[in-house]
Each structure stands twice: as C-alpha cells, then as structure tokens.
Amino acid sequence: MPLPDHFRDVEQLEDVLSQPSEALIKDIKKAPGTIMVLGVGGKMGPTLARMAKRADPDRRVIGVARFSEPGLREQLEAHGIGCIAADLLDQKALAGLPDAPNIVFMAGRKFGSTGNEALTWAMNGHVPALVAQRFARSRIVVFSTACVYPFVETSGPGAPESFSPLSPIGEYANSCVARERMFEYFSQAQQTPGRLLRLSYAIDMRYGVLHDVAEKVQRREPIDISMGYANVIWQGEANERALRALAHCETPMSPLNLSSPKVSIREIAVGLGRRLGAEPEFTGSEAPSALLVDCSEADRIFGAPEVGLETMLDWTADWIKRGGASLDKPTHYEARDGKY
C-alpha cells in the first residue's frame, strides 16, 4: 500500500501503522499458532496486535493488559483480537492465561520511574522472570530498549549488539538490563527461543522524538541539543520487524537493535521549523556522546527501513500544524542523567 502524503485523522494513522508488508505475511507463516501480546495496552501494542491479525486473518491473536484505558478493549475486539484483562504481577492471573506458541512481550515501566523505583524494578525485572517461566515452550520476542547501552561516540555507527558490558546510566535503564538478563537466563535454562529487541524511538504522529521537537518549535521553546543525535524509526516498521522477529528467534535468545540510522536533533528542528514556518531556538551544544545503536544486523535480516526521515518530518509537521492528537507522553530523549 502506498504511503499517504499526510494523515487525515487518528483512524487513518492507525490503519497505516497496522498495515502488514508482504515480507511480514511471508515470514509470519514460519511461526505458526496463536500470537499473544503481553502488555498490549501501551503506545505500540494496539497497532502491533492489529498488524498481526491483518497479516494472517485466520490466526488467533490475543492481547493481554489491565485495560485501564476506556474503550481500548472494545476497539481491539472490533478488529478481531481476543482480549484478556490481567495484571502480570499477579502470578495466579499469569498462570490462568492460555498457552500460546508465540509471545510478544511489551510490558514494562519507564515514565514515572523516578520516585517509584521499586515498582519499576518489579515490572522490568520480576515480571520477565515470571513470564519466561510461564511460557517456557513458546517463542518469545521481547521489547527491550536502547537504554541498556551506555553513551557512545557520536562519530561512530552506534553500539552494536555485542557491546559489553551493559553499564547504562540510571535506575530505569539498569532495570531494563535486569529484564534482558531474566529472559536470557530462562532461555538458556529452558531452551526457550527468542529475541531481545533493543528499540530506539518509534515514531508515531502522537508521540516520539519528532513530535516532541515539533511541539517545541511551534511554541518557540528552546530545544536542548546536548543530546545531539538519536535513532528513530517509523512505528509501522518497528511493529513489522517485531512480528517478523518471531520467525528469526534464536536459542538462547539474542539481542537485536531496532531502529534507523542516527539523525541530528539540530537538523530535525531546522527541517521542522522550515515546514512549520518557525525558526527553532537552541540551547546547549552537541556533546561528543549520545545514546546510539548500530542497526546493521537488523537491516541484514529485514532489509533497510523504507520510511525515511524527510517523510516523517513532512507527516509530523502537518500533524502538529493541524492540531492533531497528542498522547502527552514526552520521550525525554534529551535526558543525559537517566531520569525519566
């Protein structure tokens, strides 16, 4: 399906975000059986679950979440996705979930981590151990984060999957290392195949690095460029790669960086300013290090992402200019102290 010039509304946006590619339709057949998305209620979960269903309409797709957002369960069910309300911290509820040969683990905690570190560690460290034991016979694709890496030089390609040791900044990032280690341990002990997807900044019109920068440009707010570079990827392609990863699981499970080549925050702001008719204001200067990942391995497996930066800038500026919806969840991409 050709990409649109802009998005009329949230309905069209979510339709495009959940559109499966021919490559996904082909790959997903290599991972037969029910797909269960744990943590389907997050920012990416609903469109990922819809994409899975559209890629193979006869397959059972189940979404698990607490479903605290009004209307989400009904929306997913209208698209043929079975929904189960469960708190993954509740071992009884977890044990009551049906078996599924394919698990996409999207549960976790980031925003609000500072000040409630115990819950953050429970969600990002304890829940993975429970899930890994409950679904020992499944393929498990785990959404992790690029935050498990320390800062690397901006002059290089970014941190590769082999980077060691994982010594990130802040409790949130270290709790994410715990998530990976729990899944790794049980994958080794139980021979559970999987992948750890170290995602860096998926882009949706309603949130993401481009959304954050565009809002600041439009409001004439200074943009901190001390974190001068980032990796971003169109959320539809992040969804697609995550689902295709079910067909590319390894035993024991291994990490895979998930994003696009690095982009300059300054250049993003200038490009958005040109489209929005506003001159961006900057504060600070680019540090020689940033949180960056090398995505060459994912590109080898899946091919290079097709949605480029210029297209995403066009979409974002149009959305912001027309007052499109926002999830009001800043990424805090500029944070260099690990506090979220």
Rank of each mutant, 00 (worst) to 15 (best):
E297Q: 12
I225V: 14
D212L: 01
S155K: 13
P150L: 03
Q218N: 09
I28C: 03
V263P: 04
A230Q: 12
P261E: 11
Y185F: 14
A278L: 00
F67N: 08
R181G: 07
R275H: 02
S226K: 04
L119Q: 14
P98N: 08
I62G: 06
L313R: 03
Y149C: 04
T311G: 02
E117L: 12
T34D: 00
L89A: 08
W121G: 04
S138K: 09
A269N: 00
R336W: 00
Y340S: 12
D90P: 08
P160E: 04
M51G: 06
G236P: 05
T47P: 04
A132L: 06
G108L: 07
D58G: 14
A52E: 06
V127A: 08
D299W: 14
R139H: 12
T331H: 02
R206K: 14
L292K: 03
A49Y: 09
T47H: 07
G158P: 06
A287Y: 02
D99I: 05
M182R: 12
G284M: 01
M205H: 02
S264P: 11
T251Y: 05
F135R: 04
D224T: 04
P128I: 07
R139S: 12
C147R: 04
D294I: 03
G42Y: 10
Q19M: 13
L38D: 07
G323D: 09
G273A: 05
A49F: 13
G96M: 06
N239V: 10
G158I: 01
S21D: 04
A214H: 07
N124P: 12
G158V: 05
Y207M: 08
Q133P: 02
I223M: 07
T311Q: 13
I103K: 01
V104L: 15
I25S: 13
I169E: 08
R60A: 13
F105V: 02
E306G: 08
A159T: 06
F7E: 07
F67L: 08
E240T: 12
T283Y: 00
V127L: 08
W121R: 15
A55S: 15
G33P: 13
S285L: 00
R266H: 15
R266I: 01
G112D: 13
G308H: 14
A65I: 10
E171T: 13
P70W: 01
S21W: 05
M1V: 15
S254W: 01
D27Q: 07
E180I: 10
H211S: 10
I62V: 15
T47I: 09
T331M: 13
L38T: 05
I25Y: 00
S187D: 03
G228C: 04
F67W: 08
D5V: 09
D318N: 15
G33N: 09
E237V: 10
L88K: 10
R244P: 08
L276K: 06
A325T: 11
E250K: 14
